[in-house]
Simulated scan of single mutants.
Amino acid sequence: MVGPDRVFLPFCDTDEEDLVAEVKGRRLFELDRDRLGRLDAMIAILHGPSLDDGVCMEIGYAAASGIPVVVLTTDFQTYSMTEAGSHLEFPDPLLQAVATRVVRVAKLGPPALPPAPGRSRFQDFRARNMAQTSTALDAAVDALLNLPSRAPLPSGSPSGVGTSVYVEESPYTAWGRDHLAKACMGAGHTVVVPQRFTAPDPVAGALVDLTAVRSAARLLADVSGPETPPGTALLIGAALASGVRIAAFQSRPTFTHAHGREPNWRNLMIQYAADAHLDSDDAVLSWLAA
């Protein structure tokens, strides 16, 4: 049996309200990361085209650590790299590539027949949503209990030295998708760029990207935009678990503020996974030279 004592729920079990730490955001990251390395399995809830970057980072860390990941979604949309391309469960094929199982419950529960007396249409709609959620959670738990103990992933062998840099550009940047790659090549480094967005099979391309990141000496990830793109966040987690040096590039950060916590320039799991935060070309070159 799996009881509540075996379940880790980060927002509940890191106890941010009562946590006392000199740098609270970093301590929350450390508590979460330490527990990620000791999981037997993970259920990750993702929904819609804009996926939580902290959850995606945790998925990458868990998957690279050989921990089975069940991804749960009630999204009725599917996605593709081109208008006529193969349909994917998520906007970035990396999520589908690393998931041990995807549990998808895309329809609301059945309408009440006949309508309950005195209930509004809003109450009926809420009941249909709750039925969908309950079905999805039951399916995710069933999938979890029937998973193998470890999920197979392509192995990575990070060198930790040398000149190989995996460059993950942001789709939100205005200056084009090869801005950082050009800077790295100009500095004499071997550059590896994503394959999944142009590969005939996006999921196979995603696995190539994952292996490349875990085998690189460094990951240079552009985290610009309203949130870190989901695939980028996943690769940051995988790189952290694999011992790869990570730099996050963001030329115009927007800070978040929470009571008792230091100002953060990105999601905690992204900010503290990175060894360096870069905001200019000069900063990139200095990091590459270090």
Rank of each mutant, 00 (worst) to 15 (best):
I67C: 04
V71D: 00
V71S: 05
V71P: 01
L72W: 08
L72N: 08
D75V: 01
Q77Y: 10
Q77V: 00
Y79N: 02
Y79R: 01
M81N: 07
A84D: 15
A84P: 00
S86N: 05
D92A: 10
D92M: 07
P93N: 10
P93I: 12
T100A: 12
T100Y: 08
R104H: 13
R104N: 10
V105L: 04
G109I: 05
P110K: 03
P111I: 05
L113W: 13
P115E: 05
P115Q: 07
P117R: 09
P117I: 06
P117G: 07
G118F: 13
R121F: 10
R121K: 07
F125A: 14
N129M: 15
A131E: 15
Q132Y: 03
T133Y: 10
S134D: 11
S134C: 02
S134I: 00
T135K: 11
T135G: 07
L145E: 13
N146M: 04
N146S: 15
P148E: 14
P148K: 15
P148D: 14
S149V: 09
S149R: 15
R150E: 14
A151E: 08
A151F: 03
G156Y: 06
S157I: 02
S157P: 00
P158L: 03
S159Y: 00
V165Y: 12
Y166I: 00
Y166T: 03
V167W: 06
V167N: 06
V167C: 11
